[in-house]
């Protein structure tokens, strides 16, 4: 809770800072826990309903815990035309999860967003904040394998 307090420090009773604070909370936990949202609502003087509404509205905020590696597939118009659907199908087949879900081992989360503003580079996939341009299903498969494979090696090293 101390980390949360440091985020809220100096921002009390300033409702206009809501989104900024939520971004920081999201960076801290990887998602928005209920207790954190209640604390934010109380400290900023915003109704909890408003916090929840904002958190649900923006795709940047997640209400569920996310995996260690987050792959965000852009499904905007330009990316869609260039085959973003194939990327989604690839993910579904490989990880057996729907967009917005996390694998059971808590390693990989797949999300889809409507546009990331890099249409000239489409299809775009954001891997943990890094933009990967001109994605193909093959490239995406390798990237996901790599992110999961690393963990396997670590496990082997520990064993």
């Amino acid at each position: 809770m101390t980390a949360l307090n440091s985020i809220l420090k100096g921002r009390q009773s300033q409702p206009h800072l809501l989104i900024e604070v939520l971004h920081d909370v999201q960076d801290l936990y990887g998602y928005l826990p209920e207790e954190a949202m209640s604390a934010v609502a109380q400290e900023l003087g915003v109704p909890l309903m408003e916090v929840y509404r904002v958190a649900c509205f923006y795709k940047a905020f997640s209400l569920k815990p996310r995996g260690k590696h987050v792959f965000t597939v852009c499904t905007g118009t330009a990316c869609h035309v260039r085959g973003a659907k194939l990327l989604i199908d690839q993910v579904k087949g490989q990880l057996n999860i729907e967009p917005g879900e996390t694998t059971e081992d808590g390693l990989v989360t797949i999300e889809n967003v409507n546009c990331v503003g890099a249409c000239a580079l489409g299809p775009v996939v954001i891997q943990n904040g890094a933009y990967c341009h001109h994605m193909t299903p093959g490239k995406l498969r390798k990237a996901i394998d790599k992110s999961r494979g690393k963990k396997k090696k670590e496990e082997r090293a520990h064993a």
Binding site: L48, M49, E50, Y52, R53, C56, F57
Partner: peptide, 9 residues
């Protein structure tokens, strides 16, 4: 009361 609100878009 602020108990109800519109959620989602």
């Amino acid at each position: 009361a602020n108990a109800l609100g519109f959620v989602g878009r």
